[in-house]
Amino acid sequence: MGKPTKVTNAIRTLRFTHREMTQAELADRIGVTRQTIIAIEQGRYSPSLEMAFQIARAFGVPLDNVFQYPEEPGETT
């Protein structure tokens, strides 16, 4: 079984640029387990919209800075 979600994220990079925040610290800040943060970073879990906003707010950046969705061939944004 491959990765189940097409959503990619920059959480790992954002953690390092935000005072090297650990996965546990981010998990505590948004009220989830550390394993869920790991699963999100590795693309093994696609968070709910609410959790996605909470993660973005934890870094103080817009949602698009945290999560990305690949364009389909022929799509224009």
């Binding site: 009220g31 989830v32 387990t33 394993q35 869920t36 699963a39 879990y45 709910s48 959790m51």
Partner: peptide, 10 residues
């Protein structure tokens, strides 16, 4: 520290 923790993924 993780005992009984259940989040949306769980």
């Amino acid at each position: 520290s993780e005992a009984d923790k259940k989040d949306e993924r769980d």
